[in-house]
Design a protein around this nucleic acid. Structure first.
Lengths: 342, 342
DNA sequence: CAACGAAATGTAAGCGCTTACAGTTTTTTC
DNA sequence: GAAAAAACTGTAAGCGCTTACATTTCGTTG
């Protein structure tokens, strides 16, 4: 376990018999250096195992080739998938992704952003559009470009890469109505400072309104992103009379929790109760009955968001938001409601 | 969107009427500065919204308060959970976690490590112990401490925080045998450069050997970490005659895939076929039938690994490996094999 | 082949921070 | 209340790299 101090650019320069400026140019602007010189320098670099010091470089260039992202939690499969894609794309472009998590707390998000900013990120990837103005000001004051992801930019003029959560939810609710359900309840994610969850509730509300149905305390429960919370929400909803015949969930994990709860309560799904999810994570297809849900192209979103951020940084003309289409995936957990049977 | 250059330490010093050294001390060593002075400086800091420049600090201190981790993929729930925990712990200690992913490819892992090293990480968290010596050399040459996670350190003398994969798998296989199964097959993860997967196979082999049973091409399939691969593996195993009565899987995702495949093939689980998993991710409890699996304390592992890394960095005496106990969780997917019924 | 413009390279001044050391002020001690 | 000790603060030298500008080298041209 050797531990001699790493080679510096000066060492490379000496070995190669050139100045440090030339070495630096070989690294950052190879075209401005004569081929023969470059080869000598490259030989010296690999001989010494030289690797530029990141801090020094960042200090001198005022650029870090790093972008930061703050996600609610890594334990959410959709973020894991989306950001895996972001990372792949950035990595190909020689940029490092710094991921922090906020636990769905706006204060914590702001503090994580502060840390990222302090580390000199060249850009920021944030989830959703709903956060205190002070957070946006913080970023703006540093002049760091932002890209928002998983949202469609209804209430902000920042660049968004995502999809229309409201419309997708509305479509789902309309489908549930088409299947004959009228006693419909919803288990939503926590909507505070979470526009994705909030828009999904709005979408369902709109669809129900067309049939003069509403969502209120009796048939709308907000729940944490966990199986247990989903199961618990179901117990609450099933204590109402008459019981709902369909439950629309804000995401697949809640839907899985509801399904689990239904099994515990001996409620037959989908015969007695239909359940729908949102996101189409792998889990959805392996449940029994398989989950009717909304398919979202998380990976493509991630790639696109990364590309957009890269483009902004390289000074490309600002393009508008980009909104992906979502697909309704009908599976066994949703079935036609037969009025007599209930 | 203002964009004036951020305040430097010199600005703070001027406003507070002290030298830059004093400002720096307020930040890094508050106890060495008089209370009154400190208050003045702090006022100046918040007035200017000063935030130290990371690159400059790293350059001067030769320390980044950053640790790097390379994980196979963020899309694996156990890594997501474990590293969420790591991050929480490090964040409390004022250290940032830099996560890169390798896609289970040792070359890519080495290259990611190189990037991390270049960014001056103070420590490295790596998954598993199996990787080329050259990779270990790379890290050693920089004198950066390593902690290995999810392994038990059988073949390396680096610090490991994890559990005994072999023993846990052996225990699982023994249980399957106890349940009366004799025609047992295994769907393992890809074992190349993956000691977790390899040890689990070894464990199962050992248990079977005690009953003079073996694992060979006919009843052992390696598969990617995906549902589809699990389903496909099942098809292959079920083409053997006689068919196995139990399938031990290297992880829960594969087990879920096998279960999905079984449904597609109209094989009744667990009546016709028992299935077991490994890891006890959330998914395991929501499947029907719920998965018999090995519970691993991923979060505690993450915390502990973070603590260990922090300790090493602060020059604490090196402690040995730490191995967590795992629990067998028996659920409905494993049932007693009744010889007559098959 | 001298003179000139272009191309390649070198020189040296920072980038913003920490910290050893020196200098100053405050407290303690007799 | 002066001297010694302790506590605090300031000065200035880097940390390793990039890059504007100066200098040298090279290929062209008349």
């Amino acid at each position: 376990m050797e531990n001699r101090r790493p080679a510096r650019i000066e060492d490379v320069a000496r070995v190669a018999g050139v100045s440090t400026a030339t070495v630096s140019r070989c690294l950052n602007n190879p075209s401005t250096v004569r081929e023969a010189t470059r080869l000598t320098v490259e030989a010296a670099i690999s001989e010494l195992g030289y690797t530029p010091n990141f801090g020094a470089r960042a200090l001198a260039m005022n650029r870090t080739h790093t972008v930061g992202a703050v996600i609610p939690t890594m334990e959410n499969a959709i973020f894991a998938r989306g950001f895996q894609a972001v990372q792949e794309r950035l990595s190909d472009a020689g940029t490092t992704l710094l991921i922090a998590s906020s636990g769905y707390d706006p204060d914590r998000e702001a503090s994580q952003i502060r840390t990222l900013l302090q580390r000199g990120v060249d850009g920021l990837l944030l989830v959703g559009e709903s956060r205190p103005d002070s957070t946006y000001d913080l970023v703006a004051s540093r002049g760091v470009p932002i890209v928002l992801i998983w949202c469609s930019g209804e209430k902000t003029d920042h660049v968004c890469v995502g999809f229309d959560n409201r419309q997708a939810a509305q479509q789902m609710a309309r489908t549930v109505l088409d299947y004959g359900h009228r006693r419909i309840a919803m288990v939503a994610g926590i909507t505070a400072w979470n526009d994705r969850a909030a828009r999904r509730v709005e979408g369902v509300r709109q669809a129900l309104a067309a049939e003069s149905l509403t969502l209120d305390e009796a048939n709308l429960v907000e729940a944490d992103y966990s199986l247990e919370a989903g199961a618990q929400a179901l117990r609450r909803l099933m204590s109402e009379t008459p019981r709902p015949t369909a439950i629309i969930c804000g995401n697949d994990v809640l839907a899985a929790g509801v399904l689990k709860g239904a099994r515990q309560m001996n409620i037959a799904v989908p015969e007695e109760l239909s359940i729908t999810g949102f996101d189409d994570i792998d889990l959805a297809s392996v449940l029994d009955p398989a989950l009717t849900t909304v398919h979202v192209p998380h990976r493509r979103m991630g790639w696109t968001a990364a590309d957009r951020l890269l483009a902004i940084q390289s000074g490309a003309p600002p393009e508008g938001n980009i909104s992906f289409a979502t697909d309704l995936v009908i599976r066994a957990s949703l079935t036609r409601h037969n009025e007599r049977s209930s």
